[in-house]
Simulated scan of single mutants.
Amino acid sequence: MTGSAKAGFCLRCAVSYPILKACKKIDSLFAGEKSFSYLDLLPYVLNDDGQTPIVLNSDRKIQLQLDRKGEFHTTS
Rank of each mutant, 00 (worst) to 15 (best):
Y38I: 09
I19Y: 00
D67G: 00
Q51N: 10
V45W: 00
K69T: 06
D59S: 03
N57G: 09
M1Q: 14
K24R: 13
S28H: 10
A31G: 02
I26Y: 02
G3Q: 04
I62Q: 15
L46D: 07
T2L: 14
V15L: 13
D49H: 08
N57M: 07
A31V: 11
P18G: 02
A5I: 02
A22C: 09
A7T: 08
K61C: 11
K34G: 03
L64S: 06
P43D: 05
G8A: 15
L39A: 11
L20S: 04
A14G: 11
C13I: 06
D67A: 06
Q65C: 13
P18C: 01
T75F: 01
N57S: 06
K24I: 01
Y44E: 00
D67E: 04
K24P: 02
L56C: 09
Q63F: 06
K21A: 12
S35M: 11
R68A: 13
E71V: 01
Y38E: 05
T52P: 05
K61I: 08
V15F: 13
L20E: 03
Y17R: 15
K6I: 08
S37R: 01
L11D: 12
V15W: 02
C23A: 14
P43M: 01
G8R: 06
Y38A: 15
N47I: 10
Y17W: 12
Y17Q: 15
K69I: 08
V55S: 04
K6L: 13
K21L: 10
S37Y: 03
K6P: 11
L11E: 14
K34R: 14
E71S: 11
G50M: 13
S16T: 12
V55D: 09
V55C: 05
D49C: 11
R12H: 04
S16P: 12
N57L: 01
P43Q: 07
V15R: 03
C13L: 14
T74F: 06
I54L: 03
L56M: 10
S28D: 01
S37L: 05
P53A: 11
D48W: 00
T52Q: 12
T2H: 04
V45N: 05
R68S: 15
D40K: 03
D40N: 10
L20G: 00
K34A: 02
G32D: 14
G32M: 10
L42W: 04
P43V: 04
K21C: 05
P43A: 02
K6V: 12
F30W: 11
S58I: 10
I62G: 01
F72E: 14
D67S: 08
Q65L: 12
L56S: 13
